[in-house]
Amino acid sequence: MNITRSLLAVLVCLSLASCMTVKEYQKSRINDSEMELSARKAEKFETGFYLYREGPSGANGGKSSGGCGCN
């Protein structure tokens, strides 16, 4: 749980201390297709086989629980 707390602390610090208002015209890099905050479409079937070969699911942009005879 220490790792989780540390990550949350880093996230909160980054969100509160380092955020700046980024204008739309400054988002050429943020809007790059490789910067999308989701799993890539080409990863679709990889997140699928993790569901069968590993116990956890969810919070990764793929399927969570249900919808398949998987874990």
Partner: peptide, 8 residues
């Protein structure tokens, strides 16, 4: 969006 290069 944290800054011009980083988003979480």
């Amino acid at each position: 969006v944290v800054n011009k290069r980083l988003q979480l």
